[in-house]
Design a protein around this nucleic acid. Sequence first.
DNA 1: ATAGGGTTAG
Length: 629
Amino acid sequence: MVPLRTFTFTLTTSRFHSSATVSFPHTPLILLDLLQLCIHLRAYKLTQQSHTQILANGFAQNTFLTTRLVSAYATCGESTMSRLVFDSIETKNVYLWNSLINGYVKNHDFRQSLALFREMGLTLLPDDYTLATISKVSGELEDMVSGRLIHGKSIRIGFVSDVVVANSVISMYCRCGEFGDAMKVFDEMPQRNVGSFNVIISGCAALGNCSSTSRDDLWNFFARMRSEGFKADAFTVASLLPVCCGETRKWDYGRELHCYLVKNGLDFKMGSDVHVGSSLIDMYSRGKKVVLGRRVFDQMKNRNVYVWTAMINGYVQNGAPEDALVLLHEMQMKDEIRPNKVSLVSVLPACGLLAGLTGGKQIHGFSIRMELNDDSSLCNALIDMYSKCGGLVYARRIFNGGSYLKDAITWSTMISAYGLHGRGEEAVDTYYKMLQQGFKPDMITWVGVLSACSKSGLVDEGISIYRSVMTKYEMKPTVEICACVADMLGRSGQLNQALEFIEEMPIDPGPSVWGSLLTASVMHGNSRTRDLAYKRLLELEPENPSNYISLSNTYASYRRWDVVSEVRTMMKERGLRKVPGCSWITISGKTHSFSVADKAHPSSSLIYEMLDDLVSTMADGCADMDILT
DNA sequence: ATAGGGTTAG
């Protein structure tokens, strides 16, 4: 007879604490179930209590219990405890070894699990479970040498015919970039399951070479899978969706996969698969069909943080920052889901786009409370947001703060921030400091520093940096970089040099380059370069209304109404309409927007009065600073 | 009774 004992356990999750008292006999079988519960709940305290009960009841050497105990501790992120339990066992069997090796895998300590695998080999022969686990480890480490050794061992011991071992080996080859070897193992498998096909599909999709032929290969493989009688599951579809680009691109199987899901009852709507749902949302967002993404989102029964973040990101990427901010609020209010690091990084550009300093500050505060401020990408996003919301001081404060590791993007962001605020010298200074610290600049860094030079009239500094792109870094500059140089020369009044540069630049000048020349020509009153720029712009972008409006306005200023009406007729013929640009400011939660020559605002006359004041103050200031000559 | 592979958002 086993006596009934009371057992109090405490469950601790991130949201609440609760405890309960239950009575049950401490048989090994019950303790085994209890440990299963620990794993399911990732409950550390309960694991500790179970451990105590195992010891108290004299089961310390019961390998059934200790194997699961090792697994439970590892699941709770306590691999040190797993190791202690493991070490206390006198006779270690394969199960126990496997449990510990996999425990380290769960905690991403791949080196340790590989070391253990070697140590195990001294006394025991690995089995199919060991090989499947350790093959995954080689893949995670992208360690081909150990990967091939493990593949060889699997062949020698005969476990390569095990489906799971073979799948793991295939995955390992994919992760190591040896797709040919992966395919070879796949073809030689005596039997396959859905997982085998999924490994190949996800491995092929992860190759990232998005050439249309490799995508067609992928689609053909998906067809082969079905023709061999295997039904695609959620894994399959979730691997295929990220390589579908939506309707605007050439490779458009996204909607087809969506149909497949509906037809085959792989129902993302019922909450069975949040992963498939978020991949669908993402696929539609990338295809500029954010409304369709939203429809998927609305149909889903369960939404986790991935789903919400995918939707938020979709809105930000498709020019709907307001919707993104609404969702950030709703995810917390409706679903009680806490945004994580990626959610915040996704939503911060929305604040930048809206120049919403208040919202940005709130998100910053939230990220501090969530202790996410040690993350580079989050800090980069914050710097960018502050800079775009006019808060250069805040941006600099984060940049100078030492709570996170600065990467090349951090530096580039800060350089652009200085440029945006007209601080050319600080931008150049920061650029050279970045190089000094050994960070590699890229095209984005150069656009940032060169546009900063251009705005601040630092022509010599800019030209020298531009030259270094080609000489020191041996890189071919992008159109954007060339546009910066053209802008730099043009703004400083060197229009002939700018034109000369454009004619000799290493790539074909695009609209941005001619646009720079145009703006500078108008600024300095050079009609020759101006008209050449207009000519090129209308050739390159006959459908862009901005070019016609600009042309019309220029000739209107010379009272050449004949040209103006001619241009307006051309626009009408081509069915072009320009949406007027506008700017806005939010004061006490109310947004006031203004377009050119706008007199609609109730305080319009007061605003214009203030504007006149500002303009004359600026003119005085410029005269003092010798800028206007 | 104990241990395993294939998938997510910037």
